[in-house]
Amino acid sequence: MKRKLLGIIDATTYHEDLEDLLTHRSLAALPFAGRFRIIDFVLSNMVNSGIGSVAIFPKMQYRSLMDHLGSGKNWGLNRKRDGLFFFPSAIVDSEYNRIGSFDLFAANMDYFYRSTQEYAIISNCFTVFNIDFAPILDWHIRSGCDITEVRRQDGSSLELYLLKTSLLLNLIETRDQTGYSCMRDVVHDMYHGHSICHYDYQGYAVMIDSIKDYFSTSMNLLKPEVWKNLFLPEQPILTKVKDEPPTKYVKGSFVKNAMIANGCLIRGAVENSIVSRGVKIGKGTVLKNCIIMQKCQIEDNCYLDSVILDKDVKVEAGTSLIGTAQAPYVVQKGTKQGALMNS
């Protein structure tokens, strides 16, 4: 597989409905499930499927994404041969916001010319799933199709495409003549003579494109049937490791139905919530239906219901914040919430 399939992740996507969580980061770097970033899912899937060369195409605000990926070591992609490649876009503002923009690829043609892998898989960066690409490649080869589009059970596209690297090169090189600007244009058109097939993926897969989706997908993680489908011991979702101690539950704390990452210090009550690494929760504080991102500090006697706290938020003692499942209360990264601010 290392020599057979090339992994390409389009990390340029921006969703306006996620704006409050994307002011400091790209969508690919959106924290998810307590210790991951959204891109970890597709990247780990590629590595677990045996892909040894992965190219990531990011755009704007990619500091946090680069910091997260580093040399690719946490995914075993810091290799002498192949490994992880990072191609920030030179095009600051392009018209198209579609997966697999050929303009984007064209700026880094050398990567495609130098790669020896016969096939390529092009993916978006914001799908939460645990999938093995090897059987899909087999299926693609057996079916004899030129391009395979992977779809969900409900028939909607997962914006995931398989094709021969040579065909991809051809599509990039001829984009001005054909008018196809991205993979989606190609699969939606009938008149190019390439055969298009659809592979129906039966497993769990959610594409995150709004705060509401982000919130509900996060809450669904608390269902064992969901997390058991996502966190498979034999196909682990890998991420940047941090040296946090195990989480400490102090006397008097109360926790029920929660997913909690390492390095937390919990003195209060946590229910139906996702808590990321290094969060401190004070005495007498109650969290319900919340998503708390890294390093937040919630002081004593607070009440938070249906709230998303972005990273490094400090909630002062006695503060009450309440949102709803339809419209969770979002607090932006690095801000402070005081008890008097909302009264």
Partner: peptide, 21 residues
């Protein structure tokens, strides 16, 4: 070890403990 976060079920009771991922 690179594992998912710990999952505390609705029926669980946690008192004064240290728990890893």
């Amino acid at each position: 070890p690179n594992r998912p976060p710990q999952y505390i079920s609705p029926d669980a009771i946690i008192k004064e403990s240290v728990i890893n991922e």
